[in-house]
Amino acid sequence: MAEYLIYFNQQWVGDHTEEWFRGRGPLAAAVVDEIKAAGAYVFAGGLEEDGPVFSADATNGTLMFTDGPYVETKEWLGGLTVVDVADEETARMWAGKIAEACGWPQEVRRFGHMPQPGDE
């Protein structure tokens, strides 16, 4: 099994009415329920657009916290889903279902191998 990150940038969402968004919520929730029923669910959630944003940086040897995003950018992460599936084909299937339910594109990336105690 491998874990895949399925995510979107907030700017990919586009401009829609409040009614349109309310109609998409149940569709997206149904896909998450389907992922859970399939035993592939790890995590899913949307990020608050106006919530707190801060950075932690220790690259100069001293830990510093800064309010606001680390870099000024026109795009930022809007939400994500992590699935644990047998293969890329299954990750594509879930990404497609999420894209259809949400109504905007999704990007998919596989997580790299996490070293385990005793790995050398």
Rank of each mutant, 00 (worst) to 15 (best):
T81W: 11
G25Q: 02
A28R: 05
H16K: 14
T90C: 03
G46T: 04
D57T: 12
E72A: 02
A86W: 01
T66I: 14
D50L: 12
E88W: 10
H16A: 07
E88L: 11
E88P: 10
Y41E: 00
D67I: 08
E49C: 10
L80H: 08
G23V: 03
N60C: 10
G45T: 09
F43N: 08
Y41H: 12
R22Q: 10
D84V: 14
A56Q: 06
W20S: 03
D50K: 15
V85M: 12
D33V: 00
T81S: 08
D87G: 00
G45E: 03
D57L: 11
D67G: 14
R22W: 04
A56P: 11
V82I: 15
G25W: 15
L63F: 08
E75P: 08
G39W: 04
R22C: 06
P52R: 14
G51V: 10
E18A: 07
P69R: 06
E19Y: 07
V53L: 08
M64V: 12
W76D: 00
K74Q: 11
S55P: 07
A86R: 05
E72S: 04
A28H: 09
V53K: 14
P26D: 01
M64H: 09
A40L: 00
Y70V: 00
E88S: 13
A86D: 10
G51N: 13
A44D: 00
D87C: 02
I35R: 01
T59C: 00
